[in-house]
Design a protein around this nucleic acid. Structure first.
Ligand SMILES: [Mn+2]
Ligand SMILES: [Mn+2]
Ligand SMILES: [Mn+2]
Ligand SMILES: [Mn+2]
Lengths: 220, 220
DNA sequence: TTATTGATTTAGCCTTGGCTAAAAATAAAA
DNA sequence: TTTTATTTTTAGCCAAGGCTAAATCAATAA
């Protein structure tokens, strides 16, 4: 049973909103995420329910099924592989890839994805640090935490961003934060939650709590 | 003014059927090419006429406009660049690329195509020997003729195929004909139009007139 | 326990791109 | 010139994905 482009986009949104299928999702939340109206979402949920990729009980949100999770992860895999291609091979900036990948992820060709994966040397993470599921939908997730959750004097390495909007990514470029950077928390300001971070043992960075909440790191 | 995927496909079909905009095209011909019904074509022709990419007079075929030609050539450019990518970078066989390129050609991103073109080193021909229009829609076409039009003892080089179906391309692979091969006409059989060809000064190939009509060469 | 409110669904409409069957126009034959 | 055959268009229908407005349900407050 195949999904349309619209259905794939909805399913991906539901997967993300449900945090990997662990919680149920409301019609209104899906509408907000998809920038569409709740009435349109109700229609689509009925269709996705018919196709068994979600479990839909009227008036009580939806839960993604195992089959649905598998489908969503396939689309996510394609999205992230294309992002790697755009950045590594075509010199796109990491803030320029999302929209294009949003289209490319719907190209139907298992051979294409298999070959692309090999060509990119089986990458494990996309340009934003998000893990790329393998062809069976398995994700080798690293334990990550937001900078804002780290304590003063703790060290680590930036591995991903929570917000992949162009605006945020451009800001990170400007201040010199990037995935792979080694960091150390120098100070946390009680008053406004802002932080002072040492990057690569040489550069000091001040950031608001909003920024610190959207940078993910592993501790070391 | 933007075209939908369906409109782009129709326009491309009309461009090809009109032999680059030189002749007008009938509703039935478009229907056959698009594997759809004449009634559906009538509808679409009205839409394309409204968008000024064709000139549509009811009951008398259509002619593609200058604007339409430019649009069609952009789509053709994208199709052929993707085919080069699939063959050169992802190791697709030349008979495996068409369907995928038929989807990829509709991805909307001028930057993507510009970067892809550079990445592929500005190729001038696709894997089937068809010329790739530049970003302004200019095509540097080589004068080509079908093997069947060549005379005994004439020499040349295979530069393209007229039929790009998987079946035909697989057949060419099997018998060892390929784009770039140097050839010489050894014999033409009056009775059935079949031919005997010398490939690369060493291999002799017998082919039916149907095959010979679908291989294009430049004379030398 | 009833009334109210906020979330959700239903009803009805729109556009795109298909289809079939019927009507109409053109082209060909008598 | 009239009839016939072929091509093309029109009319009316369908499914997918949107929308707005109205109805309905569930949860909460009174
Ligand atoms: Mn998408
Ligand atoms: Mn990403
Ligand atoms: Mn296409
Ligand atoms: Mn080609």
């Amino acid at each position: 049973m195949t999904l349309t482009t619209a259905e794939e986009n909805y399913l991906k949104a539901i997967y993300h909103l449900s945090e990997g299928g662990t919680k149920s999702v409301s019609t209104n939340d899906v509408a907000a995420e998809m920038k569409t109206k709740p009435a349109s979402v109700s229609d689509m949920l009925r269709k996705l329910g018919d196709k068994q990729v979600i479990e839909y009980r009227k008036y009580y949100g939806v839960n993604i099924t195992e089959e649905g999770k598998k489908r969503a992860l396939q689309t996510i895999r394609k999205h992230r592989l294309w992002e790697v291609f755009l950045v590594d091979k075509l010199q796109f900036a990491w803030d320029e890839v999302h929209e294009v990948a949003e289209e490319l992820e719907h190209i139907q060709s298992p051979l294409l994805i298999q070959r692309l994966d090999a060509y990119l040397n089986y990458p494990k993470f996309d340009p934003h640090g998000d893990p790329i599921p393998d062809e069976y939908g398995d994700v080798r997730a690293r334990p990550r935490l937001a900078l804002i959750e780290m304590e003063v004097d703790q060290s680590g390495q930036i591995v991903a961003v929570k917000d992949s909007s162009a605006a945020f990514l451009k800001y990170l470029d400007k201040v010199g934060a990037y995935i792979g950077a080694r960091i150390k928390i120098l100070d946390k300001v009680e008053f406004d939650g802002s932080m002072e971070i040492l990057v690569d043992q040489k550069k000091t960075l001040f950031m608001s709590k909003d920024v610190a909440a959207n940078i993910l790191a592993i501790q070391s």
